[in-house]
Simulated assay, not measured.
Amino acid sequence: MIHRLRGQLAEKDMEGVVVDVGGVGYRASTSASTLRALPAVGEDCVLHTRMVVREDAMLLFGFAGREERAAFDTLTAVSKIGPKLALAILSSLSPQEIVEAVGRGDVVKLASVPGLGKKTAERLVLELKGKNLGSFDPGIGGGAGGPFIEAREALAALGYSIEEAERALQAVPPQDSVQRYVKEALRRIGSRR
């Protein structure tokens, strides 16, 4: 099994990369975040890989770091999530954002990934919630559950973007009610303007 490649980055496109290792070019599909993290074509690089063997193909997937590869492994263990969908998820969300969304049961955030419908997002939360998510789990902030999501939706209803609402709410210590989350988040948003 190919676990890691070290060589010269020979090609880079929207689908993935080719790494030249001793004159042999290895093609690997990658996430958008890995593409951004890799150096320019012609430079040396290290690519952490996962090989997927199917009846009709042997596919190689590459990652800029071990954390993203661990997230890929965890995602592909969920039923109805194959390697391509796992890459789409990792192109939209960082491993930490995945852990936080699963921990909060945030189906809306997960379903915002192109190709990941609401039912599959619900399955992902159901299968991963409460499990140790391996080496890519940076730890979920205490208490970020239902009130957090409801507060984010309340801020969105007030006209703030989901990203702006999340940034403000993540700066708020865990609260026991939606109202307290919203009040603290609005105070932080107001102080930034």
Results as ranks from 00 to 15, higher is better:
K131R: 15
G143Q: 07
L75Q: 02
N132P: 11
M1C: 09
K183D: 15
P174Y: 08
A37K: 08
R6Y: 14
I81N: 00
T49S: 10
L126K: 07
G65Y: 04
E100C: 02
L75C: 07
K109Q: 13
V102P: 00
P95M: 07
L133A: 05
G134H: 06
A28L: 08
I81S: 00
Y160R: 11
E97A: 15
H3F: 13
V172T: 10
A10T: 06
A71H: 02
E164T: 14
L9K: 09
G145R: 03
L155M: 08
L155R: 01
A88I: 07
R193I: 14
A71C: 12
L47D: 02
Y26V: 11
F72V: 03
E184I: 09
L116T: 00
F148P: 00
E15I: 13
D20L: 13
L47F: 02
G105F: 00
A156N: 14
E163A: 13
E67I: 07
G142F: 07
L124T: 00
L124G: 00
K119V: 06
D20A: 10
T49V: 12
R54C: 03
R54Q: 11
S29F: 14
R152S: 08
S161E: 12
E43Y: 10
V19I: 15
Y181W: 14
R123D: 01
L158R: 07
K109I: 09
A171D: 15
G82P: 02
R6W: 10
F63A: 01
Y26D: 09
A77C: 09
P147N: 12
V125G: 00
R188W: 05
A165V: 04
V182H: 02
R188S: 05
E163K: 15
M1T: 11
K118F: 08
A154I: 05
K84S: 14
R193H: 13
G190F: 13
Y160V: 07
L93K: 00
V52K: 10
I140D: 03
L126Q: 04
L124F: 02
A64G: 15
R187K: 14
A86V: 03
C45S: 10
T120F: 01
N132H: 11
L90Q: 02
G159F: 12
L87F: 05
Q170H: 13
S91W: 05
A144E: 08
R27F: 08
T49K: 06
S161T: 15
P114W: 11
R104K: 11
A157G: 15
R27W: 07
Y181A: 01
H48E: 11
G117I: 10
E122D: 08
L186R: 06
L116F: 02
Q175C: 13
K109H: 06
